[in-house]
């Protein structure tokens, strides 16, 4: 299994992952967990300083791609599609994501992702992502 330091070094070479500014905190063959730092550029609602829904979905997609293929060289795993449920506003502060690979076949992987802020039991969003492995 690839070590966290290498995964984070790979991730830091992806321009959009730097834009998101997150760090992978744990990883095994079926899961990845990451923490994203709140940035001004992540704001979607400028009145309330909430995260943009698209940034939340992007962070979930990035975490899911790393769970599927942590030792990517050129680009992260190829996304096919996604569905996201937004459950609570993402407020100013760190955002956590946990990606769980529910099925990894020869060609396609399904990944479920959950994000939260202070309490894992109060998710900000949940999502399902498909990736093409070929």
């Amino acid at each position: 299994m690839i070590d966290l330091e290498t995964v984070n070094a790979n991730a830091s070479r992806v321009p959009f992952f730097r834009f998101l500014n997150f760090e992978v905190q744990s990883l095994d063959s079926l899961h990845a967990e990451a923490e994203m730092t709140f940035e001004e550029r992540h704001i979607g609602n400028p009145v309330m300083d909430h995260y943009h829904g698209g940034i939340i979905a992007s962070f979930m997609e990035a975490t899911a791609a790393i769970a599927v293929h942590p030792d990517f060289s050129e680009a992260p795993a190829k996304p096919i599609n996604l569905t996201v449920d937004y459950l609570r506003p993402g407020v100013k502060g760190p955002l956590f994501a946990r990606a769980n690979v529910t099925r990894k076949g020869k060609r396609i992987a399904s990944v479920s992702v959950i994000t939260w802020q202070t309490d894992r039991d109060k998710p900000v969003a949940e999502g399902l992502y498909h990736f093409l492995l070929v």
Partner: peptide
């Protein structure tokens, strides 16, 4: 907004953000 070091391939997430 790209995923590759050549910076020619957009990340899906930015397209999702754009739609939203």
């Amino acid at each position: 907004f790209c995923v590759d070091t050549d910076q020619t391939l957009l990340h899906g997430g930015i397209l999702t953000a754009l739609l939203d």
